[in-house]
């Protein structure tokens, strides 16, 4: 078990380090940020000064070494565009993205598990078929397309919900939250649903598959034969076994929810990290891109590590056999 832990931990560190090199090399290759930084009409001296100030005249390895050293000190560089620390800039957008992602996960769970369980228990019914057909759509439709349709229907045609922005926010613990005001909640609903759709389909499928696999199992038959109520059999006996894979997948997928937020935030003008990074790509704001990517990589690696460890702790077969 300790060997397994060490192996995974070392692996995670290697991945983060390798990604820092790849990300930096990749971003280093993009365009010439000088054109963005200064007025094209600026004279040679201003130009040279700016280049020197941002260290853009140094060779690649030197810039990387400097970057890595700064990274370890927690300094991710300064945004070319906003002229403030990139890390602080991104972190200031983090709560908005997290709020959106958590709301999306909540919607996916609250809708997905009951729908999936129903479709698994009555696979032949018309409602179940509709649910499954909808989940196929949820999988295959691009997020941005659904977002567009949501805006068209609920904002433009019906006028029920706003099409963008965060709405009114409440300041708690120095962070702004939308979900505490009715206006903010209205602004949150469409983007959260948009972002939830893919995970919702996933949960429906997982729950349905789990239910169909568990329902004919001996322990469920036994529980039914004992005369336990349908409700109890489903909720206690079957669900407990279905939840493990669902929780795992949800854990793994949280990272991708944050990643997909890039698309949703852009459509709904939600002022989170995703919108910031798209803007920074379009304006060649290197430090912001690098910082965002490093944060996302770290998040993914951490999530994978946690899921691996949680799995090992829960399932003795993985714990013992995981070393191969």
């Amino acid at each position: 078990m300790i060997a397994f832990l060490l192996q995974r931990l070392a692996g995670a560190v290697v991945v983060i380090f390798a990604m820092s090199l790849i990300v930096f090399a990749g971003v280093f290759a993009i365009g010439n940020p000088i054109d963005v930084l200064i007025n094209p009409a600026a004279d040679q001296i201003t130009r040279a000064e700016t280049i020197a100030r941002y260290g853009l005249d140094r060779p690649f390895w030197e810039q990387y070494g400097y970057f890595l050293g700064a990274l370890i000190r927690g300094d991710f560089g300064t945004s070319f565009v906003f002229n403030q620390p990139a890390l602080g800039l991104i972190l200031s957008k983090l709560p908005a993205t997290l709020e959106l992602a958590l709301a999306a996960m909540l919607i996916a769970i609250v809708l997905g598990i009951p729908l999936g369980a129903y479709a698994g228990l009555k696979p032949e019914s018309a409602i179940s078929r509709t649910i499954m057909a909808a989940s196929v759509l949820g999988f295959s439709l691009p997020t941005f397309w659904v977002g567009l349709m949501l805006i068209l229907v609920f904002s433009v045609e019906l006028g029920w919900l706003p099409s963008g922005g965060r709405g009114e926010t409440v300041l708690i613990g120095g962070i702004e939250w939308s979900f505490l005001t009715s206006d903010g909640l209205a602004h949150l609903l469409l983007p959260a649903f948009n972002l939830a759709l893919f995970k919702l389909s996933l949960i429906i499928r997982l729950t349905r598959a789990g239910m169909r696999e568990t329902w004919p199992a001996d322990f469920v038959k036994f529980a039914r034969a004992k005369g336990l109520s349908m409700r109890r059999v489903v909720l206690v006996h079957a669900m407990r076994n279905i939840l493990i894979p669902i929780v795992t997948v949800l854990g793994l997928e949280f990272g991708s929810v944050v990643a997909f937020a890039v698309v949703t935030e852009t459509i709904f003008s939600w002022p989170g990290m995703g919108k910031l990074v798209i803007d920074s790509i379009l304006t060649l704001d290197r430090p912001v891109m690098v910082t965002y990517l490093m944060l996302v990589v770290t998040m993914f690696v951490t999530i994978n590590l946690l899921v691996d460890l949680a799995y090992a702790a829960l399932d003795p077969r993985v714990r013992l056999g995981g070393q191969r």
């Binding site: 990300v23 971003v27 993009i30 990272g255 991708s256 990643a259 790509i281 891109m289 996302v296 993914f300």
Partner: peptide
């Protein structure tokens, strides 16, 4: 595969 394809593609076209 532990990263979503869309994110990778986004980074790559950005580069």
């Amino acid at each position: 595969l532990s990263f979503p394809a869309i994110l990778l593609a986004l980074v790559l076209v950005a580069i």
